[in-house]
Amino acid sequence: MRNKFGLIIVLLLIIIFSVVSFRWIKHRIEYAVTDAVFVETEKLAHISFKRVSGKIVKMYREEGDTVKKGEILAEIDPSDYQIQLEKLGAEIKSLSYKKEALEKKLERIKSQLNRKLEISKLSLRQVEEEIKGLTLKLKQIDFRTEQLEKDVNRFRNLAKKDLVPARKLEEMETELKILRTEREALSSRLEQMRINKVIMEKKVKQAKADILKTGELKKEISSIKEKINVLKKQKEDIQNLIKETKLVAPFDGKIAKKYKTEGEVVSSGMPVYAVVSDEEIYINVLLEETKLKGIRKGSKAYIRIDAYPDEVYEGVVEEINPVAAAKFALVPRDVTAGEFTKVAQRIPVKIRITKGNTSLLRVGMSGEVEIKRDR
């Protein structure tokens, strides 16, 4: 009787073991199971002062603190940059005063030179008109003199024969002398006007040359403007640097790591905080290549995290990396020498969580995943 009872117990154990083994094998056929599971995030930023360096005068957050996008996390002493800003401001102001003075001087000189040029041109036109008038008068006198000389010669011949009164001849000779005297005066006046014309032409030419010389003043003003523009850009850059002395959170999240403390001197690019986002968490699975069969994009997955064994998270396969994880190792294996030990490679698989309390998860946590195979 005792032997029969013992046999029944053995048979029950064999049946239970067989059922459990069958279910375990069936589960392994239907699911890819691995414990190479890590909680990751799309947003993990090591934030630093990008272009500024100096002594940290204030740090506002500790590890684990929640932060909002744009919130100030730390500050560097901006004194050096403020001194540079004040120096640039004073230099810009000085150059601006100089530019304004030169512009007023240029305007005054241009006005004077333009007036001088107009006066010279007007004087030149007056001289030219007077020359034209004198030239015309000389022609008229020459014509009248020529006619009068003929008449005088003719009257002299007639006077010798007592055919005309002597008094008439004397009047004509007197008129001829007057015309010759007037011509000499007009000729002298004309010569003087021609000299004046040359002088006026030189004055016009000089006035034009003086106006052209203002180009040097214009170049100087243009050069100062360029310097002011360059300094303004430098000033704008310094203003941006002063803004950058305040380190701000790039997105909503939590402080994962605090690298520095108040009073430390940091260089640009040196990490001060690490900020992680709670909203972009996903599961990174390093799945053995032998378990990839039937795993597709969209395959359903169930995740258990070691820290919360009673919590079951659901998700879907979002991405299957086309390259094995070993290819990204710092020292990848070199099989070209002929030395080779076959090792099952692991393929990174990204799983997006669709159900579960993700606020409990922390980046770096590990666990186990079961991925439903598609037939």
Rank of each mutant, 00 (worst) to 15 (best):
A337L: 15
N157S: 06
R296E: 15
L241V: 00
S188D: 10
L124K: 11
Q239A: 14
L148W: 01
L158P: 01
I76V: 10
K246M: 05
S187K: 09
I119W: 10
K104H: 10
I351V: 14
I295A: 01
I281S: 08
I119H: 06
A307M: 05
K161T: 10
E314K: 15
N240D: 14
Q84K: 14
E339N: 08
L176H: 02
P271H: 02
A326Q: 11
I238R: 02
V349N: 03
L286R: 01
K177I: 14
I83F: 06
V363W: 08
D151I: 15
E318T: 12
P348N: 01
D374R: 08
Q147M: 11
E244Q: 14
E244M: 12
N3S: 14
R108P: 04
I199K: 04
L179S: 07
P271V: 03
L179I: 11
M365V: 03
L186V: 08
L113I: 03
I83K: 09
A90S: 15
L169P: 00
G367K: 02
I195M: 09
D80C: 00
E40R: 13
K160I: 06
K69A: 08
V204I: 01
S299R: 04
D35N: 12
I228T: 02
V275A: 04
M59C: 00
V335R: 12
E370R: 15
L169Q: 04
K246L: 02
T214G: 05
Y313K: 03
L106M: 13
S188Y: 10
G64W: 03
I15D: 04
V276H: 02
G364A: 08
M172Q: 07
L12D: 01
L95I: 09
V20P: 00
K99Q: 14
N3L: 15
L247Y: 07
L113N: 05
L12R: 05
A185I: 15
L122Q: 10
Y81M: 09
R144W: 07
L102M: 13
I29W: 11
R23L: 09
F251N: 01
A185M: 14
T245L: 08
I83L: 07
V198S: 11
Y31H: 13
V39Y: 04
K227T: 11
I351G: 01
F22E: 03
G356M: 05
R115M: 14
K87A: 11
S187G: 08
I72M: 05
K99W: 03
D252F: 03
K208P: 00
I295W: 00
L231W: 03
E244A: 07
K93C: 07
I29V: 10
I303F: 01
T336F: 09
A36N: 13
M193E: 14
N114E: 14
M1F: 14
F155C: 00
K219I: 05
K203N: 13
E129G: 02
K235L: 15
K58N: 11
L124T: 09
D210N: 07
F22P: 01
G54M: 00
G269Q: 03
L286W: 10
K43L: 11
R51T: 12
